[in-house]
């Protein structure tokens, strides 16, 4: 019913358009379709090859779009055959990706929320300085500090150390804080003031009054940051190379594989399996992300 209504209204809108607008929109529709094909086809190609048997897959036949074998067992074989460093399996890399992603999300979003909350809702000595730092770190391009940063992490014992790496990730002045700050400014103080009158302390106000109000934004940022962190190979390569994540594992597997027939189909299956969590999360939460994660103007 809803779709029928939408179609009718779209048709009515279309009828009211001028000829120029009809040509304009049709050209864009063609552009969108071509762009969608260019974006999507590579994945169809990889999926098609990921369900071929190693025997069916070879360089002469892998140009065909459709497979005849449907070897979904390749996806199960990933767990036993996708191995790097000789003994690190897909399961281990999956676990590394999970703990690295969730630890990052927890400490980063917590720090961002606390900094944004303090800056948006309280007046205190140093507030202007902290706000300035938040803006400064966003808009001043500093190139090539990777060496100094690595040296510091090395000296602090943070390289390949899951027990300390969380502190490196606890950046409360990044893009997430910037977005949360804007949202906190828009939340009325009256809720916190009423809770205060009812006897709630600051922690209770933050946890029970403020946090539920920005939960949709936190979920949206978590999904957004999940996708970035899940696919981040650089951190694993530089800081946690003894705990390779899936993204880094894919890079190493591709680098070190001698590309036997079986290796290639397993690689394709692993590529798609690694991409799946991010795609599913995005499909489920896309409206929430678009509504909540926005970039406004920078003042200051």
């Amino acid at each position: 019913m809803n779709i029928k209504k939408k179609l009718n209204s779209a048709l009515l809108k279309w009828k009211n358009l001028s000829l120029f607008e009809k040509i304009f929109l049709t050209s864009f529709f063609i552009y969108f379709v071509v762009e969608a094909v260019l974006q999507f086809y590579p994945f169809v190609w990889v999926f098609n090859n990921s369900i071929k048997t190693p025997d069916e897959f070879n360089y002469a036949t892998n140009k065909s779009l459709l497979t005849t074998t449907w070897a979904f067992s390749n996806y199960i074989n990933v767990f036993s055959e996708f191995v790097i460093y000789g003994n690190i399996s897909y399961f281990t890399m999956l676990w590394n990706s999970i703990w690295q992603t969730f630890l990052y999300l927890f400490v980063n979003l917590l720090a961002s929320m606390l900094v944004a909350y303090a800056l948006a809702k309280f007046r205190f000595p140093g507030r202007g300085l902290l706000y300035g730092i938040m803006i400064f770190t966003q808009i001043v391009p500093i190139v090539g500090t990777g060496a100094a940063s690595y040296k510091l992490r090395y000296e602090l014992g943070m390289i390949n150390n899951p027990a300390t790496i969380w502190f490196y990730w606890m950046n409360g002045f990044d893009y997430s804080a910037f977005i949360m700050f804007g949202t906190f400014l828009g939340i009325s103080k009256s809720y916190s003031e009423s809770a205060e009158i009812d006897g709630a302390n600051e922690w209770q106000i933050l946890g029970r009054v403020v946090f539920p109000q920005i939960l949709p934004l936190i979920i949206a940022l978590a999904v957004n940051n999940f996708v970035a962190r899940w696919n981040d190979y650089a951190t694993a390569q530089i800081s946690l190379n003894k705990f390779p994540s899936l993204a880094y594992g894919l890079y190493l597997f591709q680098q070190n594989s001698n590309w036997s027939k079986s290796g290639k189909v397993i690689y394709y299956a692993a590529l798609l399996m690694t991409a799946l969590p991010g795609v599913l999360l995005y499909v489920v939460f896309q409206n929430l992300i678009i509504k909540n994660v926005s970039v406004g103007g920078i003042k200051g």
């Binding site: 974006q39 994945f43 996708v227 696919n231 190979y233 894919l250 991409a275 991010g278 795609v279 995005y282």
Partner: peptide
């Protein structure tokens, strides 16, 4: 359109 961004650089 968001697939390349969602699946990430390595994939």
């Amino acid at each position: 359109y968001h697939i390349p961004g969602i699946v990430g650089g390595v994939v």
